[in-house]
Structure formats: structure tokens, C-alpha cells
């Protein structure tokens, strides 16, 4: 109870500090926008293009692989917490599970999903 209360107070403080920074910045800074200041950065030129949402596919692959392995990770935490009580059976069960995940990892590796340079 106490600990959760402490956490709540701390999280509130963590929101107050950046909020205060933004507020102070908004109050103290001057404000005279012009066309040049509102142009997105481009090495001193007029911007050649606007971001369109098209990005190298590698980023999406990394995202998908991350989800695969993060789900595995979420399974491993409770298992790691109780392995000593559960003993060898839990270890063997996790070997099976990890075996499947690692097979997927090996497949992704072999297919070249982890290669950044083609």
C-alpha cells in the first residue's frame, strides 16, 4: 500500500518536472515566427521533399521480430521467478518452448531478415 503510494507520488513528480519545464520555456522564450523558421531542416536549401511514410522495409522487419521475441521474453520472466521451486520439469518445458522460438529465429536469420546490407 505504502509502496504504491510512493510510486504514485513519484510518478506525479515525474510529470510535474517536464510540465514545468515546458511551461517555463513557453513563458520565457520570445516568439516571432517567420517563413524560414517554419521550414523543416534541409541543409540550407528549400526542402526537397516531405516525409511520406515510406521507409526502408528493414525497420518494419525489426519491429516484427521484436514482437516475436518480446512475447518470448514475457513468458520467461514468471518462469525464471519460480524455476527453483518447480524444478527440472519446468526447465524441460521451457527447453521445448525456447526450441520453437529459436527455430523461428534461425529461420529469420537464414532468410536474411537480420541482414541490413543486401
Amino acid at each position: 500500500m505504502n509502496e504504491n503510494l510512493g510510486l504514485l507520488i513519484f510518478l506525479l513528480l515525474c510529470c510535474v518536472v517536464p510540465g514545468g519545464m515546458l511551461l517555463l520555456f513557453a513563458l520565457l522564450g520570445p516568439r516571432n515566427p517567420n517563413r524560414v523558421k517554419e521550414t523543416p531542416f534541409e541543409c540550407g536549401l528549400e526542402p526537397l521533399s516531405q516525409p511520406e511514410g515510406l521507409l526502408p522495409v528493414h525497420f518494419y522487419l525489426v519491429g516484427m521480430l521484436f514482437i516475436l521475441f518480446d512475447v518470448e521474453l514475457v513468458w520467461l520472466f514468471p518462469w525464471a521467478r519460480v524455476l527453483r521451486e518447480q524444478g527440472t520439469l519446468a526447465f524441460v518445458e521451457m527447453l521445448f518452448f525456447l526450441g520453437f522460438v529459436l527455430a523461428g529465429f534461425g529461420y529469420a536469420w537464414k532468410k536474411g531478415a537480420l541482414e541490413w546490407e543486401k
Binding site: C14, V17, L22, F25, R31, P33, E38, P40
Partner: peptide, 25 residues
């Protein structure tokens, strides 16, 4: 704190301000 707050045209004002706050918080 005393610099001008510039924001490019077409930026999403709310999220643009939220992002640094999320990072710090």
C-alpha cells in the same frame, strides 16, 4: 529557457510538445 520556440509548418503541435515531456518523465 530564453530561446525562441520554433516549430516547423505541418508539425503536429500537441504531439510535438508531448514528445520531450514523455522522454523526460
Amino acid at each position: 529557457f530564453t530561446k525562441e520556440d520554433c516549430m516547423p509548418k505541418g508539425a503536429h503541435r500537441f504531439i510535438f510538445n508531448l514528445a520531450p515531456a514523455i522522454s523526460v518523465a
